[in-house]
């Protein structure tokens, strides 16, 4: 039995750190976790006595709720810290906040922060396991894992699939995590957006970049739309939202160029009528709500695999 049974790390900071075997382990474990969520009593005692702090420096409904449900289904004690009501507003630094939290001995900290690299900083100074729930424009590893889980559930594989990722490529941490994950697992990844929103040198990551949506969508197995992140845009990247929709918005007509069994994904929150037409978001190809449902199972898997895992390695 040489199959991998644990993550070889204390923290989950980025997909870039994970091996394909570790990714498969998370996805396989998530399948078992999904079944737990379908039971009459949706709770197992696996993380009983563990304390998990959800430290969110950016607004989030989906990710925070998803982590909290995952923690509760595993019987962990959870604590939510929303920044608006914390001492951050009194000027405390991230490192000081983390060290003060750590003094109360949590086992894991789930961190969402607007600065890229915030999770790496915490991982260096904290004994607790750090789980990245999105850091700036860097990575959002659990989102990429739940996207991969959803694709695998529908397509039974990741290897060889054409995945078109369309939208705000420049500001998207979801894109960076998905590119890392999907290229590691052998998918054929295409990225598409206005030239102003395509990061320079993105093809070095093993993806094909285009500003032609027809080229991106043609024969795609998976079409993933990314939100236009107006809150992160300081300049004018395109003339207007209406023009963006007319050139890059996903409509039923454009979707017809994809494979007949294409699936449509969106990490949320959606801007209907900007990156995606309502008929597509609510249409038969959409797996957007499956992504949300699968998020809980994938986060349960990550929490379970990280809880105590690094200590095992250290002792071994």
């Amino acid at each position: 039995m040489t199959a991998l049974t644990a993550l070889r790390r204390k923290d989950l900071l980025a997909i870039a750190d994970l091996s394909p075997e570790e990714i498969s382990l998370v996805l396989d474990t998530a399948e078992a976790m999904k079944e737990v969520g379908e039971r009459p009593i949706k709770k197992v005692p696996a993380l009983r006595g563990k304390t998990v702090v959800n430290l969110f420096y950016e607004p989030s409904t989906r990710t925070r709720t998803s982590f909290e449900i995952a923690e509760k289904r595993l019987s962990a004690d959870t604590l939510n810290i929303a920044v608006a009501s914390s001492s951050v507003v009194k000027g405390e630094t991230l490192a000081d906040t983390a060290l003060n939290l750590e003094a109360m001995h949590p086992d894991m900290i789930v961190l969402r922060h607007s600065s890229s690299g915030a999770c790496h900083l915490l991982a260096r100074i904290c004994k607790s396991a750090i789980i990245n729930a999105g850091d700036g424009t860097h990575e959002h590893p659990t989102q990429a894992l739940l996207d991969a889980f959803t694709i695998r559930e529908r397509k039974k594989k990741l290897k060889g699939l054409k995945v078109a990722i369309i939208g705000d490529l420049l500001h998207s941490r979801v894109l960076r995590s998905n590119i890392q994950l999907l290229t590691k697992m052998g998918s054929d990844v295409w990225v598409c957006g206005p030239p102003t929103l395509i990061p320079a040198g993105i093809s070095r990551f093993g993806v094909r970049a285009t500003s032609s949506i027809d080229e991106a969508v043609a024969d795609a197995d998976v079409v993933m739309l990314l939100r236009i992140q107006l809150e992160r845009m300081e300049g004018a990247y395109f003339p207007s939202l209406r023009e963006y929709f007319s050139v890059f918005g996903m409509t039923e007509a454009r979707l017809r160029q994809a494979k007949p069994d294409v699936i449509i994904m969106h990490p949320g929150p959606m801007n209907r009528g900007v990156e995606i037409a309502s008929e597509v978001a609510d249409g038969p190809y959409s797996v957007i709500l499956d992504q949300v449902a699968n998020g809980v199972a994938v986060r349960m898997a990550v929490l379970y695999l990280l809880a105590g895992g690094a200590n095992d390695e250290a002792a071994a």
């Binding site: 039995m1 644990a6 976790m33 993380l47 695999l305 809880a307 095992d312 002792a315």
Partner: peptide
């Protein structure tokens, strides 16, 4: 589950 000092964890 969380007590094993060494060795592989069981796959769920």
């Amino acid at each position: 589950l969380m007590r094993q000092a060494v060795g592989p964890r069981a796959i769920v």
